[in-house]
Simulated assay, not measured.
Amino acid sequence: MDHSAHGRVRRALRRNAPALAEEPLRRLGEGLDNVAFVAGDMVLRAADEPERVYREAGLLALLAPRLPLPVPVPRFADGEGVLAYPLLPGRPLLGREPGAGAAQQLGRLLRALHSVDPAEVAALVPVEDADPGEWLSELAGPPALVRAVRSAVPARSGQRALCHADLGAEHVLEQDGEITGVIDWSDAAVTDPALDFARLYRDFGPAFLTTALDVYGGLPGAGPRIEFFARCAALEDLVYGLESGRAEYADAARRSFMWLFPDAEPAGTP
């Protein structure tokens, strides 16, 4: 039996969408935890943990009618770890400038998302501590930047909300200046809401963050945590981009150093 992602997707199509079973599979992308393909008008994401896929499908079904931006609406979740949903329009914003209204749109999205009662999703997502100290254990990158992160570690927060928890530019779709969807909810958790703003800050800069927070209604006391998590996430993307050959991640991380590490840039970047 073919246990590759391609083979699992093909079998899932035969079981759940036979009309697409013989459609060509076009590889859409790959992350740390999954591989995505397109068949016809459908995205098929193959992950290694079927139970996690079922939980994500349940979460998306709950969130889709409540959020002000489109999210994938599951067509099926398969026992081999395949999640299928209609292809959303647009391209990821990784390496591109967002439209003029993107910060407002994402601020409204996070206000709605973080307002969901954690009790409603207790069976669908984990509760994660988001202890800044734990983020240091695998921190790597240019020594000057790692030292800068280690010199300013904020205290852990007791704030908790339902979060996307990986809201980077690669998961925000845009077309003609409008955000058309937010994808890949596999890391969603009840955790520190600062995490969702941190990657927006990393990818789009301080003015974007300020606008998103204003529309959201503010997150008092979160500034140091947003900066810390953004710095860690930028170093993580730099290492990932260099080790995987995904230059777009490394390039975006280096760009973010201009505002995340203004005193260390450019000497601290490889």
Rank of each mutant, 00 (worst) to 15 (best):
A252M: 02
L219R: 01
V172K: 00
L110T: 04
A123R: 14
E30W: 06
L167G: 05
F257A: 15
L83R: 13
L200G: 03
D48E: 14
P220G: 11
R160Q: 05
V71H: 07
A77Y: 04
A152D: 15
H6Y: 13
A46R: 09
P89N: 08
I179G: 00
S186G: 15
G168T: 02
T210Q: 15
R108L: 11
A84T: 00
A84W: 11
Q104V: 13
R11C: 07
P262K: 06
F204Q: 03
L235N: 02
L235C: 08
L28M: 12
A252T: 14
G245T: 02
G81Y: 02
R111T: 03
R160N: 03
V82S: 07
A102W: 06
P65N: 09
F76M: 05
D251W: 05
L173D: 06
G221C: 12
G29P: 07
R96A: 11
R254Q: 13
L69G: 04
D2T: 07
F261G: 05
P98L: 10
L88Y: 11
V182E: 00
A119H: 06
V9P: 04
L62I: 13
P65E: 02
Y216E: 11
A19R: 12
P142W: 08
V43T: 02
A264W: 04
G107V: 07
E23F: 14
A267P: 00
F197L: 10
A47M: 11
P72I: 05
Q104A: 13
L209Y: 06
L242Q: 11
Q159K: 13
R254F: 00
A189T: 10
E30F: 04
L83N: 04
L60M: 08
N16F: 01
